[in-house]
Design a protein around this nucleic acid. Structure first.
Lengths: 128, 128
DNA sequence: GTCGATGAATTACTGACGTAATCTGAAGTC
DNA sequence: GACTTCAGATTACGTCAGTAATTCATCGAC
């Protein structure tokens, strides 16, 4: 069974960020890390952390007087959720139109193009 | 100057759908078209249409006793907005990781792969 | 064993969104 | 011209997200 999607908001994803880089972390460390990239109030960050806990997107283990938090939702799972959501909502669930869109509207560097070509090669080799 | 983004909600995008297929349309036609794909109440659809008007995502021109509506935000512009939003929020603004993600996690048909190869060829030819 | 600090839990407020119901004004009907 | 009808405009209401402030519980300091 695929991991059932855990929807998190954009603000919540920014609180996941430090946990995706390193875990477990104490809330104080999370607050510090998030504040390095934003001007959110400590209270705000703790609220978001608690909501993530409520949703099951992070877990907490008691460490003496405080908790240590770890991600349950992985960054990859989240990226999958969000990508699939865009795909379904905006491109009728089909990948090719999305990629065509990107190739038309986003500047792809020569390096991007090269990398993509290698990806395609790898996919074809896998299919045969 | 790029068209400034007009954020619309998911429900609103479903009301744009018939207008993207054909325009202008009277509200009654829009209601009928949306109801073909959903069970929303007529009032709900008209409310969404009005919000879209307020946001400037559609325009209205008087036609006797009623209005005819046309999209201002094109489907392509909307797809661009949403794609860029995903890219920035989830993939740090870089295209390659997004595509790598798709190639790893989404099933691409042989036809998709072929199509993509052609796109890459076209891009390279344009760049030289 | 009381007091303050500090983390966690609870509560709060605003705006947007989903989902309508109600009100209004003009156009057609009798 | 009063009455109905219907499109559009206004108002409503619960929920969730963003952004906190407030309260509670516990642990260490005196």
């Amino acid at each position: 069974m695929l991991p059932s999607p855990i929807p998190i908001s954009e603000a919540e994803s920014l609180v996941m960020e430090p946990l995706w880089r390193e875990s477990p972390l104490a809330s104080e460390q999370i607050v510090a890390a998030v504040q390095a990239d934003s001007d959110w109030h400590e209270k705000t960050i703790r609220t978001l952390l608690n909501r993530l806990l409520g949703k099951g997107a992070v877990s907490a283990e008691k460490d003496g007087r405080r908790y240590l938090y770890s991600p349950v939702l992985s960054r990859e799972q989240w990226q999958s959720q969000e990508s699939r959501n865009l795909l379904d909502r905006v491109f009728g669930g089909r990948v090719a139109p999305l990629l065509a869109h990107f190739s038309r509207h986003e500047k792809l560097s020569a390096k991007d193009v090269d990398e993509l070509r290698k990806l395609l090669d790898a996919i074809e080799r896998k299919e045969h």
